[in-house]
Design a protein around this nucleic acid. Structure first.
Lengths: 145, 145
DNA sequence: TATTGTTATACTCTATAACTATA
DNA sequence: TATAGTTATAGAGTATAACAATA
């Protein structure tokens, strides 16, 4: 609520916006690369990562991935065909199918997560104090929007 | 070169990594939304934005978009069909086709750019000093990787 | 011979609409 | 009747391989 005087177009703000754009591009490249190393598409990697936390109804997956439920069918189909995921019935509602990772899927998800963390090593260049500072700034930035 | 002792897995770093992930997700949502408002896909919006700076050979576009040249053909086709872009011969090399924005394409690119800047207003929540600090941290992060 | 852009092909992701089986 | 998941369909992005025109 402090300095809010149309700061969108001043040079400093534009510079920061550009930097964020670069971070976003870099992040995505690395994510796609990491996924490709496991012969996964971006969408498959994202879905697998979600499932590695907990089994989810197809509908919930669509919400999390911000896509239509009909798309989730295909993505889970492909993961299932590779033995990385499976569908289970939901005892409490027979309409629902729970998607879940298999043992192998969990291993791939873990490997994916590790290679991502490694890829994001750039943070290593910042000291502990700087990372704390960055955490604060990003938090406030996200809260404000 | 300061604090570099396997900082990838400590809680603070993971927290920052998560925040960056959230920023990336937010950024992409807003980019896609802004593109959709102009009835453009993300790829079309990115290509149009590139062309609004200067005409480029198809090959260069593929490099900039990090995709195969054959894909650029289709994307430019669709922009051309809507009158937003056009192909011109390159006087110095008759193999080359230069893609360029039309007058209308330039206007759409400008409108797209403005709606994006507006969408990224979250920076408004940060004071001038904080934005300078953020600029420094992001720069160092990107340089380090 | 090498390079530029294109075409042809196949796969994935995407949204929409219609369908089924449950609730 | 409403909801969960699926199927069918069509459009767009993607990579690969083969091709024509030009260098």
């Amino acid at each position: 609520m402090a300095a809010q005087k149309t700061p969108s177009f001043d040079p400093l703000t534009l510079e920061v916006v550009d930097l964020i754009g670069t971070v976003v591009a870099r992040y995505h490249e690395e994510y796609e690369e990491a996924a490709a190393e496991h012969a996964l598409t971006g969408a498959q990697a994202r879905l697998l990562s979600l499932l590695s936390l907990e089994p989810l109804p197809m509908r919930r997956l669509a919400q999390k991935l911000k896509c239509e439920p009909s798309n989730v069918t295909g993505i889970v189909d492909r993961l299932e065909a590779r033995g990385l995921a499976e569908r289970r019935p939901d005892p409490s509602d027979r309409r629902v199918k729970l998607a879940a990772v298999t043992e192998e899927g969990r291993a791939v998800a873990r490997s994916l997560r590790l290679s991502l963390r490694f890829a994001r090593e750039p943070l290593a260049g910042l000291s502990r104090e700087e990372r704390m500072s960055l955490r604060g700034l990003l938090s406030r930035m996200l809260d404000a929007s």
